[in-house]
Simulated assay, not measured.
Amino acid sequence: MTVKKSPSSSVMLSWMPVAAMAVVAFVDITAGPDVGLLPLVSLGPAFAGLVGGWRRTAVIGLVATLLCVGLGLYNGLFDRPRGFTAMASVAGVTGVGIAAAVMRSRREAELASVRSIAEAAQRVLLRPVPLTAGPLHAAVSYTSALAEARIGGDLYEVVASPHGVRVIVGDVQGKGLAAVETAARVLGAFREAAYDEKDLVKLGERLERSVARELEDEKFVTAILAEIGYDHQVVLLNYGHPAPMIVHPDGSADFPDPPSYALPLGLAAHGGPGPEPFPVPFTPGDQLLLYTDGVTEARDEDGGFYPLAERADLLRDSDVHRALDALREDLVRHAAGPHHDDAAMLLLRYQGHGGGQEAAGPA
């Protein structure tokens, strides 16, 4: 989620150097030479160096120099050092402003390059999920906690395997590039195992081994696996992840909890029971929303958590993508500011049999 300047603020910033010089010139002419405002003409190139390119800064600096000469002659300041001091001030600030503009342009070019790399990484890591998979229609939304990032530690995938539609939504402990690297490894292992393993528990065990080999310092990944066939039920396997929300056609919502809570992926060495698969009714018209804790832990201005259960009616739109967009927009309004954690949502609607190969990316 990137913050953009509004057109009005951009116009105001672009005119700030001219306005600053105009105000200084007006006050200097009105108040007379004794006030000593002439050096403040350098505010023009100073502001230009902060908001414009080096060429524009140079032009503003030239205008400031001519204005300084004109005001100095008008006030008769060049028969004493004061006028030349003002000229030196304008020239020095213009030079610094040009240097600052050049450095800023280079940083912006580097940032644009990093953004393009991040977008390419997103297409590889969080590739678009299929619009339809078996009897399901799917939509996905992802919001990164980092303002300039497009990806983070949350992960999702939908695979139409020979054993049914298999889904994963997970949340890597931590943030930044290390979390992205871990998410990539989990998704790579899932994409391969989803086709190979007939049993959902075996798929989970394979993910556990893969994560345990890679993670250090007791880091972990919470995740939930789901398998949907044509028997009107979804089988869930929960590794310490928030319970999914199932929304029924009448608008009611359930949050099916596992029979027993298992440790997240990567912590099996600490002992404890593994996750137990449990089936939940999932019939045509039902919707399954898998999400990360960045959704339910988003706080409003008063510190209140996002009431996901009370927002189930936002998913009533006949188009699954518009439905999820409505929920995401409501979440953004509730948060009233930047997210402090990544927030991923994957919506699956049981709509009938299908086998389309189109794909949907994150909203």
Results as ranks from 00 to 15, higher is better:
residue 264 P to E: 08
residue 263 L to P: 02
residue 241 H to D: 03
residue 24 V to H: 05
residue 17 P to L: 05
residue 45 P to I: 02
residue 75 N to R: 09
residue 198 K to R: 14
residue 88 A to L: 15
residue 338 P to R: 15
residue 363 A to L: 15
residue 345 M to E: 05
residue 34 D to S: 14
residue 105 S to F: 00
residue 190 F to G: 03
residue 92 G to E: 00
residue 174 G to P: 08
residue 138 A to C: 15
residue 76 G to E: 04
residue 273 P to I: 09
residue 175 K to D: 02
residue 357 Q to N: 10
residue 19 A to F: 13
residue 322 R to I: 08
residue 104 R to G: 01
residue 196 D to Y: 02
residue 157 E to C: 11
residue 324 L to P: 01
residue 55 R to C: 01
residue 57 T to D: 03
residue 258 P to W: 07
residue 280 V to S: 08
residue 169 V to P: 07
residue 101 A to T: 01
residue 196 D to F: 05
residue 143 T to H: 11
residue 177 L to K: 03
residue 4 K to Y: 11
residue 94 T to E: 02
residue 327 L to W: 04
residue 34 D to E: 14
residue 134 G to V: 05
residue 285 G to L: 08
residue 84 F to K: 01
residue 298 A to K: 08
residue 125 L to T: 02
residue 305 F to G: 00
residue 283 T to V: 14
residue 113 S to N: 11
residue 313 D to E: 13
residue 309 A to G: 12
residue 278 F to H: 15
residue 317 D to K: 09
residue 55 R to S: 10
residue 161 S to I: 07
residue 310 E to D: 15
residue 184 A to T: 13
residue 21 M to F: 04
residue 97 G to I: 00
residue 297 E to Y: 00
residue 324 L to Q: 05
residue 255 F to W: 08
residue 152 G to T: 09
residue 190 F to Q: 05
residue 216 E to K: 15
residue 38 L to P: 03
residue 42 S to N: 05
residue 198 K to H: 13
residue 274 G to K: 07
residue 62 L to A: 15
residue 223 A to F: 02
residue 183 A to M: 08
residue 56 R to P: 00
residue 154 D to F: 08
residue 121 A to E: 08
residue 39 P to M: 10
residue 268 A to W: 06
residue 113 S to D: 14
residue 218 E to C: 01
residue 87 M to T: 07
residue 42 S to Y: 03
residue 107 R to C: 00
residue 112 A to T: 11
residue 63 V to E: 01
residue 27 V to C: 13
residue 343 A to C: 07
residue 317 D to N: 14
residue 224 I to A: 04
residue 13 L to Q: 12
residue 27 V to A: 15
residue 63 V to S: 04
residue 345 M to G: 04
residue 84 F to S: 10
residue 131 L to K: 11
residue 329 E to M: 12
residue 144 S to N: 03
residue 25 A to V: 14
residue 231 D to T: 13
residue 242 P to Y: 07
residue 246 I to D: 02
residue 81 P to L: 13
residue 308 L to Y: 06
residue 35 V to P: 01
residue 130 P to F: 03
residue 207 L to K: 04
residue 257 D to M: 14
residue 163 H to F: 13
residue 160 A to F: 02
residue 264 P to Q: 08
residue 246 I to R: 12
residue 258 P to S: 09
residue 91 A to H: 06
residue 232 H to P: 00
residue 279 P to E: 08
residue 18 V to I: 14
residue 358 E to M: 11
residue 150 R to K: 11
residue 341 D to W: 08
residue 256 P to R: 09
residue 151 I to Q: 06
residue 316 R to P: 00
